[in-house]
Design a binder for these strands. Structure first.
Length: 415
DNA sequence: TCTGGGGTCCTAGGACCC
DNA sequence: TCTGGGGTCCTAGGACCC
């Protein structure tokens, strides 16, 4: 049996843990640049705030009722780690599926229902994060059970075939894990509107029209596990760092500095995972929401002669790629850097003339150590520009404190 | 004024190989 | 008139996830 533990309205709940004054209020967390709603408390959902909806399209009278926050991923990441530590304490095998969801292996647990109720309370009490738990013999059914639990029960166990049949009967197929908007439309055109109808559809038809992925989903709905618990996170195949800018940027040097900053950040991620890259890419985009303006979305890629995790090597490749990439008189709104062809150093082999890996590991380790100790960006490379408030910076006007990761921001208890 | 960021997998088609 | 069989690699595009 699998259990799926899922934090309720996770980002909004994180904001509430250390700010009791907003616990009963409609809370909305915005994407980077304070653009769209990416998390809403139950109260905000009730007011009709939709997921992904641009906040500037919310009518002002409605907006005045909301507590609006900029995304504080440092806080959410740390709260997530706390939740996971409670889960690891409770179950032998845990798969951290996303920042707010984990699968647990419940095999050997005599009473999954009682276990889940206890765990749910414990996570809430120890971390402050309200959550729901769905339990079932496959991951897809556990996701489905979790969604049902959100309706109020808190814990839903789909143990017997009978329980599963009843759950699937009226469950919209578009809410099944792995069925997105496009496919639910296509399924509807075939007369498949519920999870039960997908479970019972001819497999040949599903395979022919949708491929093997949907066939797996179908089997999982039938109670046949096709997806295992993955305790060890697979190595990344790609690392991407990109940001939208608060304003359109015409200054090419500023865009280059943004790209340099992203490249350095991407290399930090690369090193933290113990990987090296041998292909880098860079892209820039103008403002797609202003079609009346001149548009230009260049993207460039290059293979490196040797793999590396050295920021300096990646950076100089990026700078070379960017020569002549941007056009004068265009306002760029977004840029990004990608690292691909990732590998573990031990899996690489050089040839007679080229080293498999280049770069200075000790220098980079020292750099990482300094930044970990004194804060990101304390030490780095000149190409990043080093502006306190760069013209390409993000808008984050309603950022909450980093209550749990920064001494300056520690909450104060008054007695 | 204002519209996120970061991933994965699968498939089809073309180039190329022997 | 008729033109093999088997394979790999790469890319682009489309779908999905949180």
């Amino acid at each position: 049996m699998f259990a799926l533990v899922d934090g309720n309205n996770f980002y909004a709940s994180c904001e509430r843990v250390f700010d009791p004054g907003i616990r009963a209020k409609p809370v909305v967390v915005l994407s980077n640049n304070d653009g769209c709603a990416i998390a809403r408390s139950a109260e905000a959902k009730a007011l009709g705030i939709r997921m992904g909806h641009p906040i500037h399209l919310v009518p002002p009278p409605l907006r005045k009722q909301l507590v609006v926050r900029s995304a504080n991923f440092t806080l959410y990441g740390d709260m997530s780690a706390r939740v996971v530590s409670v889960l690891r304490d409770a179950a032998a095998r845990v798969e951290v599926y996303s920042i707010d969801e984990s699968f647990l292996d419940l095999s050997g647990i005599a009473d999954p229902e009682a276990f889940s109720r206890g765990l749910r309370q414990r996570v809430h009490r120890w971390t402050g994060i309200p959550n729901c738990i769905g339990v079932a013999p496959t991951k897809t059914l556990a996701k489905l059970a979790n969604k049902m639990a959100k309706a109020g029960a808190g814990v839903v166990v789909l143990d017997t075939l009978d329980q599963q049949a009843r759950a699937l009967e009226h469950f919209p197929v578009g809410d099944v894990w792995g069925v997105g908007r496009r496919w639910s439309e296509k399924l509807a055109s075939l007369g498949i509107a519920t999870a039960a109808q997908l479970r019972d559809a001819p497999t040949d038809l599903i395979l022919e029209r949708f491929g093997v992925v949907m066939t797996r989903t179908q089997r999982e709905l039938q109670g046949q596990p096709c997806m295992a618990l993955e305790e060890v996170e697979a190595d990344r195949q790609q690392i991407l760092v990109s940001r939208s800018f608060a304003d359109r940027v015409e200054d090419h040097e500023a865009v280059a500095q943004a790209a340099a900053t992203f490249a350095v950040r991407a290399c930090e991620k690369l090193r933290r995972r113990g990987l090296v890259t041998s292909a880098v890419g860079v892209f820039a985009q103008t403002d797609a929401f202003r079609p009346e303006l001149k548009q230009h979305n260049p993207t460039r890629m290059a293979s490196l002669p040797s793999a590396t995790s050295d920021s300096r090597v990646v950076l100089s490749a990026i700078r070379r790629l960017m020569i002549g990439m941007l056009r004068a008189g265009y306002g760029y709104k977004k840029a990004g850097v990608t690292l691909t062809d990732l590998a573990k150093p031990r899996d690489l082999q050089g040839d007679l003339f080229t080293a498999a890996i280049v770069g200075d590991d000790r220098l980079m380790a020292t750099l990482d150590q300094i930044n970990r100790k004194f804060g990101r960006g304390v030490a780095g490379l000149g190409a990043s520009g080093w502006q306190v408030k760069p013209v390409w910076g993000m808008r984050q006007q309603m950022l909450s404190p980093c209550y749990t990761t920064c001494a300056r921001d520690l909450p104060r208890a008054l007695c």
